[in-house]
Simulated assay, not measured.
Amino acid sequence: MADEVQFQPARPRRAIDEIISQIRASIQRGDLGPGDRLPAERALAEQFAVSRNTVREALRMLEISGLIILKKGATGGAFITKLDHSVAARSLSDALQATNVSLSDVTEVRLWLEPIVINAACERMTAEHLQALQDNVDQASKLSAEGDWERKAVVHVEFHNLLADATGNPVLAILMRSLSDLLREFVLAVGPTTDDIILRSRRRLLGHLRKRDAEKAVQEAQRHLKRVHKMWLTGSYKGAYTES
């Protein structure tokens, strides 16, 4: 365990985001590396000056993003995973955020990039990739039933990263993760929704992916993206929008 790593008290507002940011920064600086174990929840809570529940939630989100793995038992804890595309993607997303890109900018790039990702994934994805996508949809469905909209939003965004991973191309994976970082911040800022059209679209998309039908998969992804983008811009995302 990297005992020498010390964190600063987190500000009460958006404390979870700040905890994630500090841990992510420690990884990027090299203070924490693959296999290192973070301090116990109690110690982290003291350092960040927050509750253990807040620390636990931040660790769960870090696990979803792939930066750590949580292990149970006497020898368990939160361990830094092997460095992957997430570090490079975060650097790129930070640079994009500094340029004050708009939602329309992000949507436009996604409309260009998603057909490339989907076509490559349909050609190259394995059974393991498909299972990871299915597990993601199942997890989102479970969180939706529990009313945990914030974690569900993070899981929804992670779907795009898993799909990009299925292409086997690290450049596509990094580009998608950088866009996902921007998208996640926006989705969390928008807040909870009353109708989860994303889950229904994801199930249709997954069905096309299983059949390796890239054309229909692209049509579903772009159709859904345009509708969600329009709802975000008009503020109707929290309304009673329904879809069969």
Results as ranks from 00 to 15, higher is better:
1 M>D: 13
2 A>M: 09
3 D>P: 14
3 D>Q: 12
4 E>H: 08
4 E>K: 06
6 Q>T: 08
6 Q>W: 00
10 A>P: 06
11 R>G: 12
13 R>S: 09
18 E>R: 08
19 I>T: 03
19 I>C: 02
20 I>V: 14
24 R>I: 02
29 R>S: 14
29 R>C: 09
31 D>C: 03
33 G>M: 00
34 P>S: 07
34 P>G: 05
35 G>I: 10
38 L>M: 06
39 P>H: 01
44 L>A: 04
45 A>K: 07
49 A>W: 02
50 V>A: 03
52 R>D: 04
57 E>P: 01
57 E>N: 13
58 A>L: 02
62 L>W: 01
67 L>D: 04
73 G>D: 12
74 A>G: 07
80 I>D: 03
84 D>W: 00
85 H>G: 11
93 S>H: 04
98 A>L: 10
100 N>H: 09
103 L>D: 15
104 S>T: 11
108 E>M: 03
113 L>D: 09
115 P>K: 12
117 V>I: 12
119 N>C: 06
121 A>D: 12
124 R>L: 09
124 R>M: 08
125 M>C: 13
130 L>T: 12
137 V>D: 15
138 D>E: 14
139 Q>F: 02
142 K>W: 04
146 E>I: 01
147 G>Q: 05
153 A>Y: 01
154 V>W: 00
154 V>S: 07
155 V>G: 11
155 V>T: 14
156 H>D: 15
173 A>V: 13
179 L>D: 10
182 L>H: 07
186 F>S: 15
186 F>G: 14
188 L>Q: 09
189 A>E: 15
198 I>T: 15
198 I>G: 06
200 R>Y: 00
201 S>N: 13
201 S>M: 07
202 R>N: 13
204 R>Q: 11
206 L>I: 03
206 L>T: 08
210 R>W: 12
212 R>S: 04
213 D>P: 05
214 A>Y: 02
221 A>G: 13
223 R>T: 15
234 T>R: 12
234 T>A: 09
236 S>I: 11
237 Y>D: 14
238 K>D: 15
240 A>S: 12
241 Y>C: 12
241 Y>P: 00
242 T>L: 14
243 E>H: 08
244 S>N: 12
244 S>C: 04
